[in-house]
């Protein structure tokens, strides 16, 4: 397994956020983390990135334990986290945002090649390379956030609600791009509220509710499940 969470619990202060979450992502696999707002999906990603401390459980990445590492060390292992709400660096240009995405030593040497790849996947970013990131549209900022994650040459790309706040047509474009990146061999951990859309992209998924995994399975299996259909697909 590339990534393995085993019985992970975490809390914000005294408020429990995750309870015994166990999930895995294989090498080159695309996995979904689905559920309603507040189910603990973002917290799971934040726990993997080291932004939230675990109260119990273990997280291993390619055999290495992550729990004791600070966030920047976890990034250096090749885990790119594209945060919720895009969070590009607003007062830096598009190109500077991408360059800083390859700040980690493992990515710095490959910067020119990564930049060419990102600009090939997102030609729009190449057109706007000199523009301040904060002045771009939401969809463009989302492309930049994903591109910035790619600059790390990640072994695992974690995406937190990439469709959030985007028009349906931009959501389609974003998901096509993610699919394209996945086909290049990058493992994906996708957090989405848009369950039906996510299930078309990922191979497997976990459904979270109140910080716990309540269901898991192959995408086709989940899409056909009565409970999932009524709770998340509006069928």
């Amino acid at each position: 397994m590339l990534l393995e969470l085993s019985q992970v619990s975490a809390s914000y202060g005294s408020v429990p956020a995750l309870g015994n979450v166990s999930i895995t992502v294989g090498e080159g696999e695309a996995v979904g983390l689905l559920g309603a707002n507040g189910a603990g999906k973002s917290t799971t990603l934040r726990a993997i990135s080291g932004l939230v401390r675990l109260t119990s459980g273990t997280i291993t990445f390619d055999g290495a334990k992550l729990a004791a590492l600070p966030p920047h060390k976890i990034t250096e292992l090749g885990i790119a986290h594209v945060p919720e709400g895009r969070q590009v660096f607003p007062e830096m240009s598009v190109q500077e945002n991408l360059e800083i995405g390859s700040y980690a030593p493992r990515a710095k040497a490959e910067r020119a090649r990564s930049l060419a790849l990102v600009y090939a996947i997102f030609p729009r970013l190449a057109e706007r390379r000199g523009q301040l990131a904060g002045t771009m549209s939401g969809g463009e900022q989302q492309m930049l956030a994903v591109g910035r994650g790619l600059m790390l040459k990640p072994r695992l790309l974690m995406l937190d609600e990439p469709s959030l706040g985007l028009a349906p047509v931009m959501t389609d474009v974003t998901f096509e791009k993610i699919q394209e990146i996945h086909k290049l061999g990058t493992a994906i951990l996708l957090v989405e509220q848009n369950v039906s859309r996510a299930l078309t992209l990922v191979e497997r998924a976990y459904v979270l509710e109140s910080g716990r995994v309540i269901m898991q399975g192959q995408s086709a299996e989940l899409a056909g499940n009565k409970d999932v259909q009524t709770a998340y697909l509006g069928i």
Partner: peptide, 15 residues
């Protein structure tokens, strides 16, 4: 500059 604009995300960049 990245850390000045968003400390948390700067850490996610490996800073």
């Amino acid at each position: 500059r990245a850390a000045a604009q968003n400390r948390e995300v700067a850490q996610l960049m490996g800073i």
